[in-house]
Design a protein around this nucleic acid. Structure first.
Lengths: 160, 160
DNA sequence: TATTGTTATACTCTATAACTATA
DNA sequence: TATAGTTATAGAGTATAACAATA
């Protein structure tokens, strides 16, 4: 889980050419690095990035429709259906059909789901609070700001 | 290929809570967006991000060992073996065992592989030259700089 | 007609381990 | 013993299409 099979030791110098200037390439590698860090810190809880995202969003938005979760997390609806089913059979979320649109499904955490989020919140907070290797705090804040801008996400409270 | 199944239209406002401050979450979403853009521009060539990366690296570093490519592209060795095999049977790369280490495999492009790279280079360059929606040119340069710093990649020539 | 969620299928990527042949 | 590559297997994630129920 923590072995990326890529000894990080610098072997031969490699010319990445045009790749070094490619946003997509840099994002792909960065995501792999950050997922490795995620598993290093939180792998012991048996949680995966997709799951924790969905759990946290449902926790913060009780009664949210599963399609809305999927849209905001950029998860395919077909995949979301499976994930929700798994979380339901794990007893973490409950599904209910709203009266005003009987096609939809609204999601809430069960007591068990809330307990799970409570268990994960502090380790997740600590994970996120850790300094990012190689980046200053300013770098880190700026990187997150630019990624949010790229994603058209609003800046959290505070600085305008 | 170009339909992410997530209508980008803003539906209900969703509180992303701690996720909005999570580097891993922001990187994951950003990578999905950039891959969608990649496919929009280059999907017609039947190429995938992993393949084009490997082809370009081999093109820029003829004779590179496949394990070295895997390390720098953060691709698992097991997956790399399959990918190289596929590229070989497509006639794009040739494999040769160096005399000084008969365990290793060195990779070069075939004429056909060079032709493929030539075909892809200009569309890829245009793709990368396109303004990134939502970001100014300064934003884009700064974002790439911070990602390279995060990845411990050297800055390309020019500004120190 | 369009939308929500579902199922089914296939493919990519990843993770792991066991294996070989070399070093 | 350790390394480079290979094979096999399993799983997660994703893409696609077709479907039922509802709007």
């Amino acid at each position: 889980m923590r072995d990326l099979d890529s000894d990080t030791r610098d072997t031969e110098a490699v010319d990445l050419g045009a790749l070094a200037g490619s946003l997509g390439f840099l994002l792909r590698l960065s995501q792999l690095v950050s997922f490795r860090d995620f598993y290093d810190d939180l792998g012991g809880f048996g949680i995966r990035p997709g799951e924790i995202s969905a759990l946290f969003v449902i926790a913060d938005n009780p009664g949210i429709r599963q399609g809305v979760v999927a849209r905001h997390l950029m998860i395919k609806r077909a995949h979301m259906a499976k994930m929700v089913r798994a979380m339901e059979s794990d007893g973490l979320v409950s599904r209910s059909v709203p009266a005003d649109d009987r096609r939809a499904v609204e999601l809430k955490l069960t007591d068990s789901g809330r307990a799970r989020v409570a268990t994960l919140s502090e380790p997740f907070r600590r994970h996120e609070a850790r300094p990012v290797p190689g980046l200053t705090r300013r770098d880190e804040a700026e990187l997150k700001r630019l990624l949010r801008k790229y994603l058209s996400l609003p800046e959290p409270e505070g600085r305008p």
